[in-house]
Amino acid sequence: MENVIEVENLTHRYGKRVIYEDLNFTVPKEGIFGLLGKNGVGKTTLIKILMGFLRPVSGRCRVLGEDSHNLSPAARIRIGLLFEGHLAYEFMSIAQIERFYSSYYPAWDRDLYYGLVDRLDLPHHHLIKNMSCGQRSQVVLGLIFAQRPELMILDDYSMGLDAGYRRLFLEYLREYIKDGTKTVFVTSHIVQDLEKLVNEVIFLDRGGEIMQTSLDRFMSGFKQFSFKKADSKEMPQKDDIIRNVDNTGSVVSVYSFQSRETVESHLKKQGFDMATLDQVPMTLEDSFIGLTGKY
């Protein structure tokens, strides 16, 4: 299958701080891919590198088959990019920004833009600098949809959006990918939104450790088990079987990709009482926190 994004042996550092070391992944054409990771793991940095706004220390990134640091105008026409913080030309009005962008994109859909933006109930001469963060996001997302790009890269699209508009946006996004030719690469702080949206997830950890899997495989394979701990202060340790450990009061939660039987026998060997062991159903957000930890 054709890849729209290819990252090979990517290494990047800020000073002495390593962001990624030898990062590799690909995003195939078609579908919605979620990039998940805690604050500071380098999600935005990765998008900056993919879009050619930052030169990595080493490695290679290709977007739509072109070197990401040298994307041609023809490739950029095919990429809709949402910058973190819903960056926009704030000196423009709703109508001016539409007029400006429409001249660059041959497949521009004016109705789609105004379909989203008119829900703000603002006059078209309203300046973007006088909008709230959420209103600005609606304008910026409207511009990206109107562009009708083949590849949409959305860096934290949910920032500043209220619940209603977030849902509306997701409906538009589903409609947008319905023809089966589009690809969306998305990061978001609202992990539960992605549960209903993405086909595949890429978990990015500090230092550039990565896990790429389909959402279904991850949700069915990654499990949470809880049990009541005896008085001893000892806790299970992370190892090849136990991916993460958390405890609230006397209840211990362990997270693992292994089966219940494997986890149970593993913890028994460590001397834990498994009489109260139970599997806990998880949402994507629970799984994300289980995988990466709360802090």
Binding site: F53, P73, I79, L87, A88
Partner: peptide, 13 residues
Amino acid sequence: GHRFRLSFHLPVR
């Protein structure tokens, strides 16, 4: 706010 990036994402050299 690094808005120059917006200009560099336009399909122009």
